[in-house]
Nucleic acid binder design. Structure first.
Length: 395
DNA sequence: TCTGGGGTCCTAGGACCC
DNA sequence: TCTGGGGTCCTAGGACCC
């Protein structure tokens, strides 16, 4: 989907079309005051001047999505809000409305499944679609079907998307970026040299900043240059597995199937504080945040029908280093008190001398709630004799 | 007052078992 | 009295993705 989070907001506020708008920032519903002020009018009647601007924003968030006009100023996803404010102070800021975005996500995915049932979820705004068995899926190299999907999504939601059609997921993903927004790109096997090899190695899904930096050090910049390397040399530099994978993807080889179903591996909640907190001095505040995270993870587990066996915490210190601790317990659980207690034990094993910026709680080793042995589901109160209070806990 | 939140997958060492 | 080779599970960290 094109600039998904931002495009969803523009459906509500069409008067902002063509203006630089960024979505993100976090907890404050900055647009609520604006809405309240114009409560007697439809949302689309609120004048653009009434919206909050990036230059007035304070806080630690990052940008989730920027509209294309905002991107012209160099503002983009994952950029800190304060940095973005310097590049484009006049951009309008709106918070993420997750419920709304999820609704549109379900809708567009539903539209696609009606047309081509073999769909793999890749997060909230992206999917892989297998055209192979879809009637007409091969016409014009897939362009006809891609056009139908674009048109149907637009009719159902008012949103545009970009589609790449290729012999495998790796190339299709790259192709989808060729003609954004609202584009279709068809890449055939024979186009590898001409259309893929000139691209930067970073365009490969799976090569991130670290691998890119190392490849640059080794004087490899484009996918074509990567393809030209001896596989043994790549394996010597990146390990057997990564090296072999790099060589394969540079040659456009990818045989991963499109998979429809997958079970979740973990569920977590985390939060970055508005200011860094100290384990001792801000104990009470941390304690209530910690408990709240546990309650929310437990709620997620229950709502989705899962129980988990490994409970863990994540800390981010003020210097941005991350520490994690986890502990596997005897019984599967979705109980907030149990999660809180075990997470509290994890907390005792981690250094707390620095200020904290983020705290997270994670439950993994999941199973469907109905499918664990009855003996594995304990009474929801944990065993009292095992209970010892942790640092964030009174008593 | 740079730098979110929710995920997956991989690696690597140690415990433990046969 | 100098020592195997599998295998699985647990834990911590890190790269990467949307």
């Amino acid at each position: 989907m094109d600039a998904f989070f931002a495009s969803v907001e523009l459906l509500r506020y069409p008067q902002l079309k063509g203006l630089p708008v960024v979505i993100g920032g976090g907890r404050r519903r900055v647009d609520e005051m604006v809405r309240a002020r114009y409560a007697d009018q439809p949302l689309s009647a609120i004048p653009p001047e009434a919206f909050p601007l990036l230059k007035d924003y304070t806080g630690r968030g990052v940008i989730t999505t920027a509209t294309y006009p905002a991107r012209q100023f160099g503002v983009g996803s994952a950029m800190g809000m304060m940095k973005a404010a310097k590049l484009c102070p006049q951009a309008i800021v709106l918070p993420v409305d997750f419920d709304e975005v999820r609704r549109y996500s379900r809708t567009f995915k539903g539209v696609i499944r009606e047309i081509a049932p073999l769909v793999e979820d890749r997060g909230i705004d992206e999917v892989y679609i297998d055209f192979t068995e879809v009637p007409g899926g091969q016409r014009e190299g897939g362009r006809v079907l891609a056009r139908l999907i674009q048109k149907s999504i637009l009719e159902a939601t008012g949103l545009t998307c970009s589609i790449g059609v290729a012999p495998n997921k790796l190339i299709a993903k790259m192709a989808s970026e060729f003609d954004k927004p609202n584009g279709i790109s068809i890449v055939h096997e024979a186009d590898l040299q001409k259309r893929i090899w000139p691209l930067a190695v970073r365009k490969i899904n799976g090569i991130g900043p670290k691998a890119e930096a190392k490849l640059h050090q080794l004087h490899v910049f484009t996918i074509g240059e990567l393809a030209a390397q001896d596989p043994e040399w790549l394996m010597d530099n990146f390990g057997r597995s990564t090296g072999a994978w790099m060589h394969a993807v540079a040659w456009g080889r990818d045989d991963r199937p499109v998979v429809m179903e997958s079970e979740p591996v973990s569920m977590s909640r985390e939060t970055t504080f508005e200011r860094d907190l100290h384990a001792v001095r801000d104990r009470a505040e941390l304690g209530s945040i910690f408990t709240d995270l546990c309650v929310r993870v437990a709620g997620d587990l229950r709502r989705k029908g899962y129980v988990g066996k490994t409970i863990g915490i994540k800390l981010r210190y003020d210097d941005f280093r991350i520490a994690t601790r986890d502990q596997t317990v005897e019984h599967f659980t979705d109980d907030a008190r149990t999660i809180r207690q075990v997470a509290g034990q994890c907390l005792k094993r981690v250094p707390l001398d620095r200020k904290l910026r983020l705290l997270g709680v994670r439950v993994s080793k999941l199973a469907r709630a109905g499918e664990t042995e009855a003996a594995d589901i304990p009474p929801s109160a944990h065993r009292v004799e095992e209970y010892t209070p942790d640092l964030f806990q009174a008593g």
